[in-house]
Simulated assay, not measured.
Amino acid sequence: MLEMVKEAEKQLLNYPQRGLAWYLKRTVKIATGKKQEPPDKINWPNGLLAKSLIDYYMQNKNSEEAGIIIKCLRKYYDRWIKRGCKLYYLDDIYSGMALIDLHQITGEEKYKKAAETMAQYLFHHEMDGAGSFPYRPGQLNGYVFADGIGMVCPFLCKYGSTYGDMNAINLAIVQMQNFIEKGMDSKTGLPYHGYQFESGIKYGIIGWGRGVGWLMIGMAESLAYMEETMPDYDMIKQSYRRMVDKVEAYQLENGLYSWQLTAKEGPVDTSATAMILYAIARSLETKVLIGIHKSRMQRGKEALLHMVKEGKLYDCLAECQGFSMYPQIYGAYPWSLGPALSLFAMDIE
């Protein structure tokens, strides 16, 4: 596992790697009036890596590597803070998970203020008529993505629980409730990739593996920080449990999951597998799920562990480009490494 930790540290500070040609091309396009995405380094792949490192740290505080991890995380967040804590997308918020932990570990107020910046970004973010966050407001399509639940809700609930802000937790609850109501397929019990509130139309394929993983992480992590006495806790928990039961029916004999859960003869996706298994392991840890799910989780965990090569986890589906745009390119990416390391770091009794 230490090889994975070292790889995660390396990728956290360098992903995405862009050469001089990329910056020159970007400069030319800007000069000719073409809109370009900002060079965002506080992105969701790095958020997954940062969280995996803090998860490993929490289980190995007395190890030699623990100090190296904190130094790496400081460098990652200090770089962002120095540049003014700029946020561009909902995706950026997942980096807030490890940021809150870093504040708790170091006691340095700059990390709390940076987390507050993320919370304020969400409090002032555009919403649709039901109170959900459109994934890319600038595109003016009102699309709500399953990914967004995983990228935003865990931070809101962790922030609210840590700093006593019920507004943050309530905002997360609205996101989850709306997706449960508007984004699920009634026949399979699996999520669509997303939906649009105004039209009521659901988009993308049913059961895209990584989308399922994001939704499960969003609900599992959020439940971990919600008080059981909250009025909406039980509804979200029961909805999550039902989804887990449906998802596990598509687990392959080897313990893995396909890139599209229902496509059992298609390629496996280690990112989808790692995300799904991490969510289940997290919920076993918090007692949201009971032991009956443990053997399935362990079988998949062992299968993933045997697929790690030199600290990287291959057979991972490339980055999604939008609804129904899932390039069938497989390799080793941060979004397989991060969730897998978080999973391997956990000690489930």
Rank of each mutant, 00 (worst) to 15 (best):
Gly183Asp: 07
Gly291Cys: 04
Asp165Pro: 03
Arg18Pro: 00
Glu265Thr: 13
Tyr330Trp: 02
Ala345Gly: 04
Ala114Val: 03
Trp80Ala: 04
Ile276His: 09
Leu289Ile: 13
Gly311Ser: 10
Gln104Thr: 11
Gly19Val: 00
Tyr56Lys: 09
Arg242Gln: 01
Pro16Gly: 11
Ala115Thr: 02
Ala168Asn: 02
Met97Ser: 04
Thr117Leu: 03
Arg79Phe: 15
Phe344Tyr: 14
Ile54Leu: 14
Ala21Phe: 11
Thr32Asn: 14
Asn43Cys: 12
Lys112Trp: 00
Leu337Tyr: 05
Leu48Asn: 11
Lys112Ser: 01
Gly194Leu: 08
Thr162Asp: 09
Leu2Thr: 13
Thr229Ile: 15
Asn43Phe: 04
His124Ile: 00
Asp232Ser: 08
Tyr192Glu: 07
Lys246Met: 10
Ile70Lys: 11
Gln196Leu: 02
Ile42Arg: 00
Gly67Val: 10
Ala146Val: 13
Gln251Met: 07
Gln321Leu: 13
Glu37Asp: 08
Met127Ser: 07
Trp80Glu: 12
Lys71Ile: 06
Ile201Ala: 07
Asp269Cys: 14
Met4Tyr: 02
Lys202Glu: 14
Tyr333Phe: 13
Gln177Cys: 13
Ala98Met: 05
Met219Tyr: 13
Leu122Ser: 10
Ile81Gly: 03
Tyr333Asp: 09
Gly338Cys: 01
Gln104Lys: 15
Ser95Val: 04
Leu48Met: 13
Ile292Asn: 07
Arg74Lys: 15
Lys61Cys: 03
Lys25Asn: 09
Ile280Thr: 08
Arg210Asn: 10
Glu253Ile: 04
Val28Ile: 15
Leu49His: 07
Val288Cys: 06
Asn141Ser: 05
Gly194Phe: 11
Cys157Ala: 14
Ala8Asp: 09
His103Val: 08
Gln104Met: 10
Glu228Phe: 04
Gln260Pro: 04
Asp165His: 00
Ile206Lys: 15
Lys287Met: 06
Tyr159Arg: 03
Leu261Glu: 05
Ser295Gln: 14
Ile173Tyr: 09
Met4Pro: 01
Gly207Arg: 01
Lys309Val: 06
Cys72Asp: 15
Met58Val: 05
Met235Ala: 09
Ile217Cys: 11
Met346Thr: 01
Asp40Gln: 00
Ile81His: 06
Ser324Val: 04
Gly96Thr: 10
Ser324Lys: 08
Glu198Ala: 14
Pro38Gln: 02
Asp55Ser: 09
Asp55Cys: 05
Leu284Gln: 00
Glu108Tyr: 10
Asn46Leu: 10
Ala281Met: 03
Leu12Arg: 05
Pro267Val: 12
Trp335His: 04
Glu221Leu: 11
Ile81Ala: 01
Tyr88Thr: 04
Met176Pro: 02
Leu337Asn: 02
Leu156Gly: 08
Asp315Cys: 11
Asn178Thr: 07
Gly194Ser: 08
Pro231Trp: 05
Leu87Trp: 01
Met346Gln: 03
Ser336Arg: 12
Leu289Glu: 01
Leu190His: 06
Ala115Gly: 10
Glu181Pro: 12
Tyr143Trp: 13
Tyr333Ile: 05
Tyr77Gln: 13
Lys10Glu: 15
Tyr203Phe: 13
Glu198Phe: 12
Glu228Val: 09
His193Gly: 15
Ser186Arg: 15
Lys312Tyr: 08
Gly311Lys: 07
Tyr250Met: 01
